[in-house]
Nucleic acid binder design. Structure first.
Length: 272
DNA sequence: ATGCCTTATTTCATAAGA
């Protein structure tokens, strides 16, 4: 079974490349993030044509996740129990009515595919450590931990894949000095990942295919990809029962090349 | 000090990403 995760940065803009990549890589289960469209507007027919069932969870311009599977797609969860939404800044009067404030965003979709409980996750960015978006990011991880802990009580085969928006170690960014004071590398964010691993989840680190670091994201600007100025922020966190089945894991950096790529590359994991 | 690039949308400008 071949499992993959890919932040596509708009499924609509990326559709030709996504369909081409599905045909070449032939994954059985795919976790997508940043589909940047609504559930209703997900290009389901085009993906069905290639033999995949689809569970999409999108709410418009930002965020959005999906699961594709050719090995069954059961017990779909849109979001997870207790998932928080962005609460805004804590201080100050609320002068305008903002109905979306506090509502969970489209950042998680889970399903059972080929006997594995699979989650496609898109963690909040956090913006800056002083931002309310950063507090939201940490809250979201804490709630995710609780939700996964509940599933792990009865589901040994689980893989939580996606864009975690945290580089687990300094070795997971191209230059740690550049990230001093930034999100994605702060101790509380890394502690949030450690708490997930403490549930029994293993970081399935992919082979980089080129260069020393298995980066999965490179900024579009300033030729970052060519210089390998990247970050490892897309992760596959798998239970021991799944991790022990891994025969190969790699970053498909070929998908980051050429015209019109996502700024993230897919991670591909083969399971016996 | 900021943008560098790309996306979708309330589009010829903005917000967000990381």
């Amino acid at each position: 079974m071949r499992l993959a995760t890919w932040n596509v940065n708009s499924v609509k803009a990326r559709l030709p490349r996504l369909l081409g990549w599905l045909g070449e890589a032939k994954p059985d289960v795919v976790c997508l993030q940043e589909i940047k469209t609504t559930t209703a507007l997900f290009p389901e027919a085009e993906v069905n044509e290639l033999g995949y069932e689809v569970a999409a969870h999108g709410d418009g311009r930002w965020n959005g996740v999906a699961l594709l599977s050719s090995v069954g797609l059961e017990d779909v969860s849109l979001g997870f129990p207790g998932e928080p939404g962005y609460q805004g800044e804590a201080a100050g009067p609320t002068l305008i009515d903002e109905p979306s404030l506090g509502r969970p965003e489209a950042r998680a979709v889970g399903a059972t595919c080929g006997g594995i409980r699979v989650w496609s996750l898109y963690a909040p960015n956090g913006r800056t450590p002083e931002s309310a978006h950063y507090a939201y990011k940490l809250d979201w991880f804490a709630a995710l931990r609780t939700a996964l802990a509940a599933e792990l009580e009865h589901q040994p085969q689980l893989a939580a894949c996606g864009d975690y928006n945290v580089a687990p170690t300094d070795d997971d960014v191209w230059d740690p000095a550049v990230f001093v004071g930034s999100t994605h590398v702060t101790p509380p964010e890394r502690e949030a990942l450690a708490r997930l691993r403490a549930l029994g989840l293993r970081d399935v680190v992919p082979a980089p295919m080129k260069g020393p670091h298995p980066f999965t994201y490179w900024d579009y600007r300033a030729g970052a990809f060519a210089k390998d100025y990247g970050m490892r922020i897309d992760l596959v966190y798998a239970t021991e029962a799944v991790a022990s089945r891994v025969t190969r894991a790699y970053v498909d950096r070929e998908a980051r090349k050429g015209k019109g790529p996502s700024d993230h590359a897919p991670i591909v994991v083969d399971l016996s």
